[in-house]
Simulated scan of single mutants.
Amino acid sequence: MTPQAITINSKLPQPSAIQPAADPVAQKVLAYLTRVGQLGAQNAQDVQRIEAKLDHLIALLEAQAQRPALPPAQADNLIVDMARCIYRTVANGKMYWHVRTTRYARHGVALWPDPETLAALDISEEWLKSLPFDRETPWLHKVCIALDAEGKKPKIIGLA
């Protein structure tokens, strides 16, 4: 650091100056101001990172707000359960998807790949078709399950 003169009062006939090399207090003040400037630059980078994360979070929340609402159903016919895994099987030449949940752990709950359900679950048909046959894929989500009028035939209708 080269010694510089700092003008304190320029209205005096001969401006007073502090020589950093001569005054230890001025050296401390300059060191402090330099450190504050460095911290300001570091904080600016932190603020930019936080702003990027906030932008991402806002985009996720907006996407979730645009999800279609669950179809109207009676409260008695809806169950909220924790999904643990998803798998697909083939029977009689047709593909079926099932989700094992806490309540339906043995056989799972049917998942019909219609566009409304897939949008409500925030998954794509391509992803479903990429699942391996007869092998469970971990899928931890809270799901909403609809039952028919008799309280049978559970079907996943969206995320809870």
Rank of each mutant, 00 (worst) to 15 (best):
M1R: 06
M1F: 00
P3M: 00
P3S: 03
P3F: 00
Q4F: 05
Q4L: 02
A5P: 04
T7C: 10
T7K: 05
T7I: 14
I8F: 03
N9C: 07
S10Y: 02
K11H: 07
K11G: 05
L12P: 06
P13E: 10
P13I: 08
Q14L: 11
P15Y: 10
P15G: 15
S16T: 06
A17C: 05
P20K: 01
D23G: 00
A26Q: 04
A26E: 06
A26L: 05
K28H: 03
K28M: 10
L30E: 01
L30Y: 00
A31F: 00
Q38L: 14
G40L: 03
A41T: 10
N43F: 13
A44T: 03
A44V: 02
Q48Y: 12
E51G: 13
A52L: 12
A52E: 09
K53D: 14
K53S: 12
L54W: 05
L54M: 12
L54I: 13
D55F: 10
L57K: 11
A59G: 10
L60V: 10
E62K: 14
A63R: 13
A65V: 09
A65M: 11
P68H: 09
P68G: 10
A69I: 03
A69R: 10
L70A: 14
P72W: 02
P72N: 06
Q74A: 15
A75L: 08
D76C: 10
N77E: 13
L78E: 06
L78C: 08
I79W: 00
V80N: 08
D81K: 05
D81S: 04
D81R: 05
M82G: 03
M82Q: 04
M82N: 03
C85A: 13
I86S: 13
R88N: 09
R88H: 03
R88S: 08
R88P: 04
N92S: 08
N92H: 07
G93N: 10
M95N: 07
Y96H: 11
W97H: 01
V99Q: 02
V99F: 00
T101N: 02
T101L: 02
T101C: 06
T101E: 02
G108Y: 04
G108A: 08
L111Y: 07
W112R: 15
P113G: 12
E116P: 15
T117C: 15
L118C: 14
A119D: 14
L121F: 12
L121I: 08
S124F: 05
E126T: 14
W127C: 07
L128F: 11
L131E: 04
L131W: 05
P132Y: 02
F133A: 01
E136T: 12
E136Q: 14
T137H: 09
T137G: 07
T137F: 03
W139S: 08
L140G: 00
H141F: 09
H141C: 11
C144S: 09
C144H: 00
I145K: 02
A146M: 02
A149V: 06
A149Q: 08
A149K: 05
E150V: 06
E150H: 07
G151F: 06
G151H: 06
K152H: 03
P154K: 01
P154F: 01
K155W: 04
K155A: 07
K155S: 12
